[in-house]
Design a protein around this nucleic acid. Structure first.
Lengths: 132, 132
DNA sequence: CTATAATAGACTCATAAAGTCTTTAATGGG
DNA sequence: CCCATTAAAGACTTTATGAGTCTATTATAG
């Protein structure tokens, strides 16, 4: 059970954007160099972040990605969900619809996990991937 | 990000064993009927639980699986780890060895999750999969 | 001995993640 | 208005892993 590689890229990309000048959009070309990943692949991940409403994109010359204004509201959970989706950690194959106690326990655990990840904001991390 | 189907089977199998007469081993044949899964597949999962030290197995006639004596010590985490392994939830592709703050956050979250799952004992669930 | 039951290993199949290639759409600057 | 730049979209390939089967081997109670 593991978060995908894509989530790793997305978290680092977001951190880079947070530490960048909010008025200068960062293109996928620069980002892909920083993260050592191909442009085409990374751009697909960035599009997911845009659709999740975490960042803003602009096409054309001098275009790129900018973080949304409410930086302090962007949590780890937001980013992880944007990439991983919202499927739950555990689905009991039996007791369909009925309350499976096993499922209940694991879902409670998941809720704790998500609560923690929601409390951690990407903007709280400093000094990493600082844009020069 | 999801726990495997195998973990689902294993949790239910363990619950069944907990609710069974500790002196009567339960064979994989009966278990596979209860869980509607093939014998050969389930037996591989059971072997993992044996190797993890959670249950005891005996071959031959009247053989099968029995829960270990320390029922109250068997947690959800024990079972999940026996099947899923102990690989961590997140591995930063960058900052190898050094302290990646992103990884730190996610690993802290994981530790919370595991602490919760370790506090939940399979023997605390009653009434499900009760052996008749 | 023999029927029963767990263990082991090689194998297949399906699905999802990871990544590439190409085309299309949007947009700022000259 | 044109063009260089940049994001978005979609089809495609590759690879890894989960899920599951089949067959053979080992252990053991009666």
């Amino acid at each position: 059970m593991k978060y995908s590689q894509a989530t790793d890229y997305a978290l680092h990309a977001m951190l880079y954007l947070v530490n960048s000048d909010p008025d200068k959009p960062v293109g996928v070309q620069l980002l892909s160099e920083k993260l050592t990943v191909s442009q085409t692949y990374l751009s697909k991940l960035m599009t997911k972040l845009v659709k999740a409403g975490l960042i803003h994109s602009s096409s054309g010359a001098n275009g790129g990605y900018r973080i949304k204004r409410n930086q302090q509201d962007i949590s780890f959970l937001d980013i992880i969900r944007a990439i991983e989706g919202t499927a739950s950690l555990f689905e009991c194959s039996f007791n369909h619809g009925n309350g499976c106690q096993i499922q209940q326990v694991v879902m409670d655990a998941e809720q704790q996990l998500e609560q923690y990840l929601a409390s951690k904001k990407i903007a709280d991390l400093v000094g990493m991937h600082k844009a020069e």
